[in-house]
């Protein structure tokens, strides 16, 4: 085996995206005369996304998943830790190179498209930014991509306000894919859409993943969607990933009490089961005031003394890990 071939093989085996012990804090003011406080949005998160995987990232609002996504896209520098895309640290890469590798699809297709630009212009923008071709080639590429995501070519000169929510989300997907990125970060891609449109978009995302060999990081609070799409799931709570496992393992035997509560909260359309009692209490997690010890302990049904003072360490379990004193050696 030659040295060159070895390098190519290494590149193929390299993780698509890797976050190593990434943290991000914000300084926020809490009042006119009060001192600024530190908001720990993401704390010591490590995440590995291999080529071809669909990694689901679940958690409630304010758990830091959007901040993490912004860092992974290279839009926000981490305060601590390192992010690598296809083996290369993003801190050293120009933004345009990151843009070629990683692209986002956002939640709200009403906000993610510039209302003053035509559909064609919106999807052409990524090509324009990367440069290096002429407008006739661009137009052909854009129309081909529109067809691929299920948009009629005739919509090229129309404006976002003329399109339905589902069509708009298809435009956003076309814009993300036109430069053929390797990884797409989907931040709640269907939560603003109607049920029947959601299934169309999910089907489209699956189809595109197979056809274009994409890797997804799927951020969602809808566990049914994550279960349907993801091969691996990471559960985030107040800035940390508290459990990570294969989708099957996680849904069959959730380990962390928070994951258990999340899964119990999924309301499947099965009449007669009633609404489950999640036993979480009415306390709400506040990222400005992270509890000492295990950050989940004020809401945990299995809380022990040690949870209030000592932060649990990740414990390997199967393919993933869980961060909970119930599973560690005491």
């Amino acid at each position: 085996m030659t040295a060159a071939a070895l390098t190519a093989a290494q590149v193929e085996a390299a993780p698509m995206l890797e976050a190593r012990d990434v943290s991000r804090t914000f300084r926020v003011s809490t009042g006119l005369l009060k001192p600024k406080r530190t908001l720990q949005a993401v704390e010591g998160v490590s995440l590995l996304v291999r080529p071809g995987e669909v990694v689901g990232l679940v958690g409630e609002s304010g758990c830091g998943k959007t901040t993490l996504a912004r860092m992974l896209l290279g839009l926000l520098p981490p305060t601590d830790g390192e992010i690598r895309v296809v083996g290369r640290p993003t801190a050293a890469l120009p933004r345009r190179t990151i843009a070629q590798l990683v692209q986002p699809v956002f939640q709200d297709p009403y906000s993610s498209l510039n209302p003053r630009k035509s559909i064609g212009a919106i999807i052409t923008l990524p090509l324009r930014v990367q440069g290096g071709s002429d407008s006739a080639t661009w137009r052909a590429q854009v129309e081909e991509m529109m067809e691929r995501v299920g948009l009629a070519r005739s919509l090229y000169d129309n404006y976002p306000s003329q399109l339905s929510g589902g069509q708009r989300q298809r435009v956003a997907i076309a814009r993300a894919l036109i430069n053929r990125p390797r990884l797409v970060i989907c931040d709640e891609p269907t939560s603003a859409l109607d049920v029947s449109v959601q299934s169309q978009i999910l089907n489209l995302l699956q189809e595109l993943r197979r056809d274009l060999g994409l890797t997804y990081l799927l951020i969602s609070h809808n566990l049914a969607v994550v279960e349907h799409m993801a091969t691996r799931v990471a559960v985030m709570y107040l800035g940390r990933i508290v459990e990570e496992a294969d989708t099957d393992a996680l849904f069959r035997a959730p380990k962390h009490p928070y994951t258990q509560a999340l899964l119990a909260s999924v309301l499947t359309p099965e009449p007669g089961l009633g609404v489950p009692d999640t036993q979480l209490g009415a306390a709400y997690p506040n990222p400005l005031d992270v509890p000492p010890g295990c950050r989940f302990h004020p809401r945990c049904a299995h809380v022990m003394d040690i949870c209030r003072t000592v932060a649990p360490k990740p414990v390997a379990s199967g393919e993933g890990f869980v961060e909970c004193h119930l599973y560690g050696t005491p």
């Binding site: 120009p94 933004r95 345009r96 986002p104 956002f106 923008l125």
Partner: peptide, 8 residues
Amino acid sequence: TAAQALGC
């Protein structure tokens, strides 16, 4: 944000 992520 999308434009920023495109490298504009």
